[in-house]
């Protein structure tokens, strides 16, 4: 019996198959082209597209942890928004401490300040994620309703704690000196901060992709999303893996929170729960548990929000929900359905 005889069949994945596989990725340029057709003006389109990509990438950073947390342990975490808010406030405090650096006209000092603020936020929210997982999530593994209630509770408590520490009012979060204003690219005014957000978001996506594809931990996470029981039968503790993912996801949410705060230039205790709507839409569009799907979904949502905000501001939020509905009608499991053993 020669098994090798079967090989050619596998390599002949038809063009049609490959196109269907690539279709979700093609949706992003397709949406951009559609936006171009609807907007008509190249410079406006460019401004909106960069804004959309920046927004999408920030949402991706905030959402990526949530999707893996769900994929790995079926945990629904409504408290994820808490990390976004806390991250933003910690970032605010850190930037305030480095007032000399942020006010300086030096690009290097400004970027260093943002970098350190992001690190501080990620550290604090990562630690908070550890506590959140051990205290709030661990007791309710496997019970969805309890997870929703208990993580919502965690969210509310955290928001109140923010009020206690930073006060109840919205806070203005100023961008460092050299990140203010715009640059003119091909006649279009593009905010400098958005370019930086795109850069950070892309770098994080690539880093995450590398970890998931090329490191043992990443492979275990992907294997665990598909079949946690088998990962355990191979001798690995899935709960320990989950805790690590939860901490990383929380740190990313906090990091995303600083970026989002600097983007909006205003932070409130509720900013996390507000953005969570978009985060959930992105996670569902992408396919629960899929980081790639989350990435594509986030870009789609970011672009669509910005296009509709310009074309028909009244339907901006509705449009993203509409997008989710359409995509789920086409692919009920999301763009990149995650294979589940059971």
């Amino acid at each position: 019996m020669s098994d090798t005889a079967i090989r050619p069949r596998i390599e002949q994945a038809g063009l049609a198959d490959r196109l269907t596989a690539a279709l979700p990725i093609l949706l992003v340029p397709m949406l951009a082209l559609l936006g171009f057709a609807a907007i008509g003006d190249a410079t406006t389109w460019l401004t909106l597209t960069v804004a959309g990509l920046a927004m999408g990438l920030m949402i991706f950073v905030m959402a990526s942890g949530l999707t893996v947390v769900f994929g790995l342990m079926d945990v629904i975490n409504f408290g994820h928004g808490a990390f976004v808010s806390v991250g933003a406030f910690v970032g605010f405090t850190a930037l305030a401490w480095m007032g000399g650096w942020t006010a300086s006209p030096s690009v290097v000092l400004n970027l260093a300040a943002v970098f350190l603020a992001i690190c501080a936020a990620a550290l604090v929210t990562g630690a908070m994620g550890y506590a959140f997982e051990r205290v709030i999530v661990m007791p309710v593994y496997g019970h969805h309703l309890k997870q929703i209630l208990v993580t919502m509770g965690g969210l509310i408590v955290t928001q109140q704690l923010i009020h206690v520490i930073w006060g109840p009012d919205a806070i203005h979060l100023a961008r460092p000196e050299t990140l203010r204003g715009s640059v003119i690219v091909a006649g279009a005014a593009i905010e400098k901060y958005r370019i930086m957000a795109v850069g950070i978001g892309l770098a994080l996506f690539l880093a995450m992709r590398y970890v998931l594809r090329s490191t043992r931990i990443g492979l275990l996470v992907r294997a665990g999303v598909e079949n946690g029981e088998m990962v355990e039968a191979l001798g690995y503790r899935i709960k320990r893996l989950f805790l690590m993912v939860f901490i990383a996801g929380s740190a990313l949410a906090g990091l995303g929170g600083v970026m989002w705060g600097l983007y909006q230039e205003t932070i409130t205790a509720h900013m996390g729960s507000e953005i969570l709507v978009l985060v959930f839409i992105v996670v569902i569009i992408g396919g629960l548990g899929s980081v790639e799907g989350c990435f594509i979904g986030a870009l789609l949502v970011g672009l669509l929000s910005n296009y509709t905000a310009f074309l028909a501001p009244k339907i901006a939020l509705v449009s993203t929900i509409g997008l989710m509905v359409v995509i789920l009608m086409w692919r009920p499991q999301g763009l990149f359905p995650v294979v589940k053993a059971k």
């Binding site: 992907r222 079949n227 088998m230 294979v339």
Partner: peptide
């Protein structure tokens, strides 16, 4: 296991190295 428990998202090599 009865259902083989293959990680289909991973390569054959990756399945083996994880084990």
């Amino acid at each position: 296991p009865e259902d083989m428990g293959i990680f289909t998202d991973l390569t054959v090599a990756e399945n083996m190295t994880l084990a």
